[in-house]
């Protein structure tokens, strides 16, 4: 990306955010050097940035399941997705921002983001789609200043529906990302 284009993008983001909200809070939190931190009312987030950042370590943290913080299970709302979509919609972002604030305040805690799809379509493709949803949430968390090494993703595809049955009202509940935390 050329320097010119980079500046255009930043300028455009600022303009969009300013016009959308009419205000902009000061950047704070771990996102120094101009990187937005959790707690900001609005954060520029580009779904096209999903897929750029992997993990530096070739391995998952050891024994994640044994380190799950049980008291936190179900304490953070699931993030829901549109049909065949993996972008975190604006209406869902506050849920991720809450997680980011919690992680910022608890530096020894990591998060597992579980990605899920509805039952329609190929199970193998849905496994990839669920992962992409979890990665989109991870991407937003890193945009909010959380280090990617603290965020694990796990897709269950269509294998673990939150609601049984069929039909859009059920499917929309199953297209989701869920949070669990480990220490």
């Amino acid at each position: 990306m050329s320097g010119t284009k980079w500046w255009v993008w930043v300028l455009a983001s600022v303009l969009v955010i300013s016009s959308a909200t009419g205000c902009k809070r000061t950047v704070r939190g771990p996102g120094a050097a101009g990187r937005p931190g959790p707690g900001d009312a609005v954060t520029p987030w580009d779904p096209d940035q999903i897929g750029l950042e992997g993990w530096d370590s070739p391995e998952r943290p050891f024994d994640l399941e044994g380190r799950i913080i049980q008291e936190l299970q179900g304490q953070f709302d699931s993030v829901y997705f549109g049909f065949d979509r993996y972008a975190v919609d604006a209406s869902e972002r506050p849920k991720v921002e809450r997680v980011a604030i919690f992680l910022r305040d608890h530096a020894d805690v990591g998060v597992i983001v579980d990605g899920h799809t509805d039952e329609r379509g190929s199970a193998e493709y849905n496994l990839a789609l669920g992962e992409r949803r979890a990665l989109a949430v991870r991407q937003y968390l890193t945009t909010l200043g959380i280090d990617g090494s603290r965020i694990q993703t796990r897709s269950f595809g269509e294998e673990r529906p939150a609601a049984p049955g069929t039909g859009e009202s059920v499917w929309s509940l199953n297209r989701r990302a869920e949070f669990s935390f480990y220490r």
């Binding site: 950042e53 391995e59 193998e124 992962e131 990665l135």
Partner: peptide, 24 residues
Amino acid sequence: PGLNTGGVLSPDGRDLALILSKDG
């Protein structure tokens, strides 16, 4: 880290094709 799936061995048995999300 992330997704490891879709594994299938090549016809000569030496290689494994698979889907990974470790690079994001």
